[in-house]
Amino acid sequence: MKALVYVGLKPGVLDPQGRAIARSLNDLGFDEVTGAFQGKVIELNLSGDDKDHAKARVTEMCEKLLANTVIESYRIEIED
């Protein structure tokens, strides 16, 4: 099984990297870009086949290490 963990800054936390990306895209003529947010994807290879259990465990991993919940939020996708 594979878990994909998307971690990004919470709304309202200044994201200077995202802002730089948006500004640069605008400069390149992509005027439709009104905002950009840079996060990260963490791919986990997991043993076992119980998806619900896996999701609970990965949530715990996010809370304990993968995300800093003071500034970051996360989203988990479990794949086969």
């Binding site: 800054l9 936390v13 200044l14 200077p16 990297q17 730089a20 800093n68 003071v70 500034i71």
Partner: peptide, 17 residues
């Protein structure tokens, strides 16, 4: 210290990057 919760808040990338 902030990551361990001993102090509040967090340190982000410098504003000018």
């Amino acid at each position: 210290l902030t990551e361990s919760g001993l102090l509040p808040g967090a340190l982000l990338r410098n504003k000018q990057l």
